[in-house]
Amino acid sequence: MITVDIKKGLKAYNGLQILQIKKKFSAGSITRITGPSGAGKTTFLKMVAGLITPDSGIIKTNNTAWFDASQQINLSPQQRHIGFVFQDYALFPNMTVKQHLEYATDDIQWISRLLKIGGLGDFTDHKPNHLSGGQQQRLAILRALAIKPKLLLMDEPFSALDLKMKSALIKDLQGLFAELGATALIVSHNPQELDGISGDELEIG
């Protein structure tokens, strides 16, 4: 169970906008996060990951506080052990596909399995600028999964994938999430994208 009750002032073109989120995410659930552009979806994910600090509130997983403003607790992203798929993929230009995964984990068997799921087995020596947009996006997802996270935060993770690849990948991911016992929060603009797999929805803005 992940409990979030946070507030953050966001600078917007029309002045300060308050982002306030109060929600509980049950373990192993998949939640779709929706909302208009600029509402703070990415900021919310980054606050959960510890990459941005909320102004106030708490973020708690089971009985461990990741963030508690009143007690000045704020665990670093490294301590939170969260898989994060960035909207701009944030791939490392100097690393090949294989090196990306090796940077995240030493588990060779897990790496082979991820490469198979992502359909990147033939591109292990390719650097990101020699991958298509869809392949880059899949690599970003695989890299996040490489650390076997219990919580996965995904920011528009399927936007560059074609329908066939998307549905195959989502099916595989669903199995992986179940296997890892991972909770997933997925920002998605496409209402149909997560039909059938996401049990919950959070609307921001």
């Binding site: 990951a49 992203p77 490294q78 994060f84 960035f86 944030a90 490392f92």
Partner: peptide, 15 residues
């Protein structure tokens, strides 16, 4: 360099 490069590395547990 995009700030997300460092952030991605931190989420992978790197110092």
């Amino acid at each position: 360099l995009p700030v997300s490069l460092s952030q991605a590395s931190y989420t992978l547990g790197k110092t």
